[in-house]
Design a binder for these strands. Structure first.
Length: 117
RNA sequence: AGAGUUGGCGAGGUGGUUGCAGAUUGUGGCGCACAGCGCGACCCAAUCUGAGGAAAGUCUGGACUCCCGAAAGACCAAACUUGCUGGGUAACGCCCAGUGUGGGUGACCGCGAGGAGAGUGCCACAGAAACAUACCGCCGAUGGCUAGAAUCAAAUAUUUUGGCACAGGUAAGGGUGCAAAGGUGCGGUAAGAGCGCACCAGCAGUAUCGAGAGGUACUGGCUUGGUAAACCCCGGUUGGGAGCAAGGUCGGAGGGGCUAUGGUUGGUCUUUUUCCAGCCCCGCUUUUUGGAGUACCGCUAGAGGUGUUUGGUAACAAACAUCCCAGAUAGAUAACCGCCCUCUAGAAUUUCUAGAGAACAGAAUCCAGCUUAUGUCCAACUCUUUCU
RNA sequence: ACGCAUUUAGAGCAACUUGGUAGCUCGUUUGAUUUAGCAUCAAAAGGUUACAGGUUCAAAUCCUGUAAUGUGUA
């Protein structure tokens, strides 16, 4: 359930811009940072997960894949032109796929990135 | 049956749907430019490929790249946990085979295993003393002092008996300690001591076996605490440093148009000039898009994998055949389903039903090792008990 | 990728160089003092020196391996 390259947030500069100027929504397992670039470019999504979540690369990669799969499922519902960074909290270690799905939807609606139709 | 020891295979297989990354292909789309050929970094489709035995820790050895230095070679210095022997390897501190030694009833396992007969240091407490000595003790044969007896006419002479423990002898015994000068026994002596003998242990020499480390036998004299994972000595090895975040490319690039000249290829031509066509370069202009970032190279064909044969006890090597097998860069492997296989449980008696396929764990320049983490299965061997 | 450092009582630290009975401060517990508490005084408990192996007569210390934690360069 990967994410196409065109929808990935890749540069450190973009991440810093999102952190500095974007709005912030807090969930139980995730923190959502989003910034509207005022263009029609595809919405970019990046995931940040620190070593404090887990020291094992396998665990971190699995969480990343699960979040990325959830984002891909919601991709048609997102408004264009946003830059989104998702920060994983250490509680997410024991989390299931459905939890990510539910929480992501909630956060996206809160941040008004969600496209209602 | 129980308890162990060692070694090995493999990390379920296969098909489908959706999805991600790379490569290749496309009278495909889209964009640019067009008479046409075309170009593209975007999209789509098809095909192929897509994590490990440890990818990990980063403990070693290399390949590769750059910087500094030197250019054969010798000596000195420095560094190195380099240190039994022989072999393997590109190399190693790794591997294999052996020797010695320690452990285990055994299968088997561990070992940095040169030198303390060059020097220095240290060996707390205890003890006289920790490497050179003598506290208690034993002796006091010999010498000394002293008392008596005998010989003699007599003696201070000679002989002899005793005492002292003064010189001296001794290292058996006691005590201390991890460790006290080879051990045990007999002889020997004033008392003792390898002083002598026997056995054991150690050392040296000779012979012999072995490629060697070493093994065995004989002979000899009779002796030398431990520590070098303390400094050190000896032998051995080595240009030094940094590391793919090494190092390199790009200060515009791609496409189109125009102008003049030059180069080159082809055609016309016997040849040259001329002419025509294509490509490249310089300049101008137009359009698209990026702009110091993993954008591109390095970047994955390698001391490569698999199989067979041969050589070798083995590690391993050689020959032949065959295959191409991840290349991401905020970093690609996931989700679901069917069948087969294996295991477990239940029903039941060879079928059905249910569950599980777990664990450790994710490539980031690449190899060779080591170490650590971890689940299943198989084989060989050992010991104990019971039965035949 | 290449390094560096640390690990000792509940907490913070000594002792390691030069091996020889593991200490200090705070905290804890008990007692004294006080009507009571704090403070003070006296005493006590609390350690597999991160783990495993080795050298040594003897290891927190020396050597090797492992683990955990922190940290530097770009």
């Amino acid at each position: 359930m990967g994410l196409p390259k065109t929808h990935r947030l890749r540069r450190g500069r973009d991440f810093q811009q999102v952190y500095a100027q974007g709005l912030k929504r807090r969930g139980r397992y995730l923190i959502l940072r989003a910034w509207f670039s005022a263009t029609d470019n595809p919405t970019l999504v990046g995931i940040s997960i620190g070593k404090k979540v887990s020291k094992k690369a396998v665990v971190r990669n699995r969480i990343k894949r699960q979040i990325r799969g959830a984002i891909r499922q919601y991709l048609p519902n997102l408004k264009p032109g946003w830059k989104i960074a998702i920060v994983v909290k250490s509680e997410a270690q024991t989390c299931e796929y459905e939890h990510f799905l539910r929480e992501l939807k909630q956060l996206l609606i809160q941040a008004e990135v969600w496209h209602g139709h």
